[in-house]
């Protein structure tokens, strides 16, 4: 079985992955317009400022949308079916993730349900995934 894909950090994303390794979901915020954003990049997508800084997000999020995938990507054969989800962080930005600790069923996965980040080892990085608030 093929291995699951392992992200390869780039200089501008390294702080995000360093945060994950330290158990923190670090994203960026613009010091000029105040907007937090994801994915990591050196320019604020809202106003174009380069005056941006990293901060630790709360790790709290809600389930924004998802699919339950029945045709596994290489490496995901044993997980199928699995949810590929997009969560909305408490701070506003959205990110793709997997849902852990809940069955991959429409009944168990209610949109807007509260979730919290946790980190799973993937190759030489830690990957943020989301699960129920209390567990």
């Amino acid at each position: 079985m093929a291995a699951k894909p392992v992200p390869v950090p780039t200089p501008e994303t390294q702080p995000f992955w360093d945060g994950c390794a330290a158990g923190e979901l670090r994203i960026q915020r613009c010091d000029d317009c105040g907007r937090p954003y994801f994915y990591p990049r050196p320019v604020c997508p809202a106003c174009g400022s380069q005056n941006v800084r990293w901060f630790a997000a709360s790790g709290r999020a809600t389930l924004y949308s998802y699919v339950i995938n029945h045709r596994p990507a290489p490496g995901f054969e044993d997980d199928t079916p699995y949810a590929i989800a997009v969560v909305e962080l408490e701070e506003g930005p959205r990110m793709m993730t997997n849902i852990t600790g809940l069955p991959a069923t429409p009944e168990a996965l209610e949109l807007d349900m509260p979730l919290r980040v946790r980190f799973e080892p993937r190759g030489d990085v830690s990957l943020p995934v989301f699960g129920p608030e209390e567990s």
Partner: peptide, 11 residues
């Protein structure tokens, strides 16, 4: 996409 989507099993 390789860093922030593919690791979640997009195919």
């Amino acid at each position: 996409p390789g860093q922030f989507e593919a690791p979640y099993g997009t195919f």
